[in-house]
Design a protein around this nucleic acid. Structure first.
Lengths: 190, 190
DNA sequence: TAAGTTGCCTAAAAGCATTAGGCAAACGTA
DNA sequence: TACGTTTGCCTAATGCTTTTAGGCAACTTA
């Protein structure tokens, strides 16, 4: 018997590709069915509904991103690790804009808890270990880094930095240096 | 004659309220018509289509936010101004989640150029003047601040920081202090 | 080969966005 | 005060979309 779940995964993977082609927002059952050459109703044997489809694409993207980031920081520490991790995010966003948008899809609490999202924060903590911050500050720093990475890439992809000097690449490098410097000189708690 | 545009503005304002009630994504012509007690088709005399409706709500939110931020930083400088500006963003997001989401709606280049988005970056530059960064670094810093504010509030609203210590309020304060410290000790360009 | 599963199908209900054409009331003007 | 114009709504209709239900042929496994 062709195992259940296998086909569903192929469908989700096609959904991820579609997201990169037309944008995550535009991924709908009907559009995906069109891409797969089947009737829209047939999708519903693989996926519960439109929201479920998007959730599964999000989970796929989150995992892919975690895999790449994990590979990128292996064997690195401090500034190098920070840079490698951050670049992984940014590169992934440009290579797979639809998947990256999917990774930012708002999951309900349970799904999020079971997602690769946790791997992401664990990796950030691993990087921060090289900076020897007190534990409380480390959490603040994780939150700061997450905010910057997500925020920067989102603004950049929205075209916020495109028609003005200096180049976005330059700002990115400069900002990562600044963050590295900040992490080595984190101010005492107020 | 009842001036054209007046009614359209009332419609958009109702759309903004609706966004806060049910979420910006869920604001559609049919839903808004329901709220206004008119037929869906009637909306199309005030608004070109669904995308136009969302764009107008976005512009409204952007302006509102700029007004509040401008009032908040008046008479302040340095750390105080930074804090006031940042808090305005965060408070606005919590008081008007739908409008805030609208403010992040991706506008096409022309519309964005004519929007209050420019006021936002001008205000950030005004704040940064208090830190006396070289001009190039100032642009990098503007981009960093924009990334952090947007990124942090988005993650926070997505529930990213809710079920773990320390509290999000604490991280926010700590992160703003860290940014203030960073701006006063921005590393030399690499 | 028999039984069960899978992956697709058609059919149909309900809802949405959008266009077209119409009508009554409000308005500024002569 | 009567007139033409504008406004703000309406109904009707088209062609999408999501989702549920029921069916059928092919393939898998025992």
């Amino acid at each position: 018997m062709a195992r259940a779940g296998l086909a569903a995964e192929r469908v989700v993977r096609a959904g991820a590709e579609l997201a990169d082609e037309i944008g995550f927002e535009q991924v709908t059952p009907s559009e995906l069915a069109r891409k797969l050459g089947i009737k829209t109703a047939s999708l519903y044997s693989h996926v519960k509904n439109a929201h479920d489809l998007k959730t599964r694409i999000a989970l796929l993207a989150l995992e892919e991103l975690a895999d790449q980031a994990s590979a990128a920081i292996a064997g690195r520490a401090g500034r190098d690790a920070l840079r490698a991790f951050a670049d992984t995010y940014r590169d992934y966003a440009f290579q797979h804009p639809g998947r990256f948008a999917a990774a930012r899809f708002r999951l309900d609490a349970d799904t999020a808890a079971a997602s690769a999202g946790m791997r992401h924060s664990r990796m950030m903590r691993a990087i921060l270990r090289g900076y020897e911050l007190p534990e409380l500050q480390e959490t603040h720093a994780v939150r700061l880094l997450g905010s910057v990475f997500n925020g920067y890439v989102e603004l950049e992809m929205a075209g916020g930095f495109s028609h003005s000097a200096p180049s976005s690449d330059q700002s990115w490098t400069e900002i990562l240096d600044a963050l590295d410097s900040l992490l080595r000189n984190w101010p005492a708690p107020s």
